[in-house]
């Protein structure tokens, strides 16, 4: 943080094009390569369908896959909200009692590195299998741990000097919490949210592989795959990926609005 004054630059159209061009080219190149490989090596369509065929099926099945995707996305978002709220609440509660927090953190970190998704069949038994609940609970668990862990870190890893200053102002603990600890934890929490968006779509889809109502994306994918309808399965996977990206970008937009001051926001167009 040295040198001259910097001001926030609005990305011009030219820099935006230059920024996104490589990704665009690689995307188009990748699709073209896939198409060519399938045709040239005459790969069986049930092993790997051509992108053009997936696209055609996608258009034909648009209504089905999109409504299935929306159901699953809603489940993911619902579970995400539960997990995020629970994770933040738990972090805030334990921040009052460092002993509980420090005793709990190793377990949280340990659980976080286990495949929570493995609980899906159990959740299917605990909650009505055709309802939103079993999947949402798996999603909530998957999101809960990273959010809680990061929130705890953000709340507690405040630089000593920042706290000493507040002390020197004779600040009450609640002022320290609201004016320093919580704002300091925002970047940590948002980084967990961003990881959580991807995880929540994965968890929602995979938990549906273990059963559920037929209108869901995961059930659709596993049934189409079982029937050797691979292009349909791929079209649905496309919807899942798209949902993940949309969810991620939505969180990024909220992040930008909430923390315009953060380092990650400084060079929006990249350099």
């Amino acid at each position: 943080m040295t040198g001259a004054v910097t001001t926030r630059r609005m990305p011009s159209v030219g820099t935006a094009v230059r920024h996104y061009l490589p990704a665009g080219l690689i995307f188009i190149g990748g699709i073209a390569l896939w198409e060519t490989v399938v045709v040239v090596f005459d790969i069986e369509r049930f092993l790997l369908p051509q992108p053009s065929r997936i696209a055609r099926v996608f258009v034909d099945e648009f209504g089905v896959v999109v409504s299935a995707g929306w159901l699953t996305m809603r489940k993911a978002m619902f579970g995400f909200a539960i997990g995020a709220i629970a994770g933040i609440s738990m972090a805030l509660l334990t921040s009052r009692w460092p002993l509980i927090r420090d005793g709990m953190m190793p377990f949280a970190v340990a659980v976080n590195s286990t495949p929570i998704i493995a609980l899906a069949p159990i959740m299917n038994n605990w909650f009505p299998i055709t309802s939103i609940w079993p999947g949402a609970m798996v999603v909530a668990l998957v999101v809960f741990f990273p959010v809680m862990i990061n929130a705890v870190r953000g709340l507690s890893e405040v630089p000593a000097g920042s706290l000493e200053l507040m002390d020197s102002y004779g600040a009450a603990p609640r002022d320290v919490l609201f004016k320093v600890r919580i704002p300091h934890s925002l970047p940590y929490v948002f980084s967990a949210f961003k990881v959580g968006t991807t995880l929540s779509i994965i968890a929602a889809v995979v938990s549906e592989y273990f059963g559920g109502s037929r209108e869901n994306l995961g059930v659709y994918i596993s049934q189409q795959a079982a029937l050797f309808h691979f292009a349909e399965a791929w079209a649905a996977i496309l919807v899942a990926s798209f949902s993940g990206i949309v969810f991620y970008l939505a969180v990024v937009m909220v992040e930008r609005a909430v923390m315009p001051w953060h380092a990650s926001m400084r060079n929006v167009a990249g350099t």
């Binding site: 943080m1 040295t2 001259a4 004054v5 910097t6 001001t7 926030r8 315009p260 001051w261 380092a263």
Partner: peptide, 9 residues
């Protein structure tokens, strides 16, 4: 109205 990161040391 600037943020700290926009200032020199």
């Amino acid at each position: 109205a600037h943020f700290p990161y926009q200032l020199s040391g």
